[in-house]
Amino acid sequence: MSTYVEARDVAAAVAAMADGARPVAGGTDLVVGARHGKAPLPESIVGIHRIPGLDGISVADGVVRIGALTSHAAILSSPELASATAGLLDASAIVGSHATRANGTLGGNVMNASPAMDTGAPLLCHDASVVLTGPGGTRRVGLAELWTGPGKTSASPDELMEAVELPLPPEGAGSAYVRLQYRRQMEIAVVGAAAYVEVSDGAVSAARVAITALTPVICRVPGSEEALVGRRLGSNDSVSGENPAVWTQTTEIGDAIHAAGQAAAAAATPISDVRASAGYRTAMAAVVTRRAVTAALTRATGGSVTVPASDWSER
């Protein structure tokens, strides 16, 4: 016999989850998955979609906080996130359809732990953590420690994800997420990559790169990051953000971008499925990584990259 309660606060949700209920917010994974035949609906469900304070975006004390119930549509219309975490907007802009984006939440996307989720790689590049609250209190867990396998997290079944938190990037930072897609909407990443870079004094001072749908868990690629850090942007490059072709030329930064792509392909251990073969995914890992790094560098140096960067890099 199936049951449902609607939680009015975090404590009520946690209590229901401790009794075995599964949380539902937008329903775009849990309910759609059941309709799709992936897994039946849980017998016991707790609605968390109207818990006050679990949605919304704030920036304070150098921390960007995005509530678990924040929809992709809300992420897309946030001026704070547009400047601080453009790579996250690249991802939210291409999740499902506009109905998916109006109802699907960031919390659901992150906690479903799909290796193909669009928001995962940009959040990982932004060094994000999740805030988990259970019967024993609240703790923060980095995404690399949260995702333990396809569809699996280290959160206990009675812990509710309250928010994503990430450090407010400094001036001179830029991020981007690019996926390979057969169509622009209603699509799941064939492969994807995100990049976060900081540029100071004409060189890359920090770099983080993560890959999507290429490993059992979305993960950083240290080899790509090492290829980029310390590399100088030529004097022409730094003012040529409108012309990304320059990044692919044989320059110090062009060579570094190429090496970052090769490192991503070397780190890939993809599956073959209906969307692509493992070999194709591995080959394309280099391409999407180059595109993501190029878009992030362009943004970091003041150039314009429209959201979503996937469309920008295919133009």
């Binding site: 539902v24 329903g27 309709r35 549509a73 109905a99 109006a102 109802n103």
Partner: peptide
């Protein structure tokens, strides 16, 4: 597709109890 409080929703995959 329906609107719930103005948001477009695929009603086939939305629980009626959540629209209370």
């Amino acid at each position: 597709m329906m609107l719930i409080d103005g948001r477009p929703v695929n009603a086939c995959s939305y629980l009626a109890v959540q629209a209370d």
